[in-house]
Simulated scan of single mutants.
Amino acid sequence: MTLNINTETLWIDTPHGQLFGCRWFPAAAAGDRTKSPIVLFHDSLGCVALWRDFPQLLCQATGREVIAYDRLGFGRSCAYPGQLPHHFIRDEAEHFFTHLLEALQIERFVALGHSVGGAMAATCASVHQQRCAALITVSAQAFVEDRTLQGIRTAKAQFEQPGQMARLEKYHGDKSPWVLAAWTETWLSPTFGDWTIESGIDAIRCPLLAIHGEHDEYGSTLHPRRIAELPASGGECLIIDGCHHVPHREAPEALLEAVTRFLADAH
């Protein structure tokens, strides 16, 4: 069945500035609006626009509302006040995501996060465990691995080449230097080296699916296997053959099929 999808832009107030977001939902009576919406958490250089057509395809495939937002400092959201603290993942779950839940009056949600957004999704599932219906991580890191650091060092060197910052400026404007530093300098800092996904999680009471690309340049398949072992009501691990770090661009059909199957019985 082909659903007609509506799109709406959002502005969410927080004490530190506004967050920009979008929502995609089936047109009137076309989908099951009683099911929990899927909230997307973007990666370290990401924003709503960089999800491209994935939110609409996800809405179409699952029949669920999909919500994506730019974290403070990213995309069209307001600038972040100062440097990104090393506890930024837990901060997102306890503060900024809470403002989104309240502003949109969301009682139950499905958390889906890409890369560091996967760790944020997992932390939100823990902090808001009574409200999270399901958790999906995509290419998420569970700890600071040498492979992760090498991938970041390579990307940092590439952004030092002439014209490369223009790629970020297209989406983040004059916040781009902050966005790049928030990623590279945080993860490469020795004081961040002992971070683990477990450090911000108390308990997860929903089903969990950890998806990872076979050739992910920012983390081995140890990450999804470790995430799938988090204390949850059933954890699954899926490795997408031949895929690198961005399955929603490289293997969208495989990703959509996996997510749709996983959420078939979730409310």
Rank of each mutant, 00 (worst) to 15 (best):
G151M: 12
L238Y: 03
P26E: 13
M1A: 15
I240A: 09
G73E: 06
G213I: 03
P26H: 14
G234L: 02
R131A: 12
G219A: 03
P190W: 04
L149P: 07
Q105H: 15
P177S: 07
N6E: 11
G117I: 00
A122V: 05
R90V: 01
S139T: 00
A251G: 05
S199W: 02
Q161T: 02
P26C: 10
I12Y: 06
F143A: 14
V138H: 06
A122G: 04
E8V: 11
Q60E: 12
S176N: 07
E92A: 06
Q105G: 12
F143H: 15
E160C: 11
E94L: 08
F96G: 00
E94K: 09
E65W: 03
L101N: 02
T98E: 13
I227Y: 09
G118A: 14
L84R: 15
T137M: 00
M120L: 13
L222C: 07
V144P: 07
L100P: 06
H86K: 12
C59Y: 04
P55A: 03
H86V: 03
G219T: 06
T98C: 11
E169C: 04
H245V: 01
R23W: 12
H95Q: 08
R71V: 07
G21W: 04
S77R: 15
R167G: 05
L149Y: 00
L100R: 07
V66S: 05
A134V: 01
W51R: 09
F96A: 11
P177N: 05
A68R: 07
V179P: 13
A79D: 11
E253I: 00
R131I: 06
D146S: 15
L19R: 04
G21K: 05
E217A: 11
G82V: 05
D13F: 05
I38M: 12
H267K: 11
Q164H: 06
R23C: 15
Q60H: 04
V66F: 06
Y171D: 05
A121C: 11
P26D: 08
A254G: 01
D13C: 03
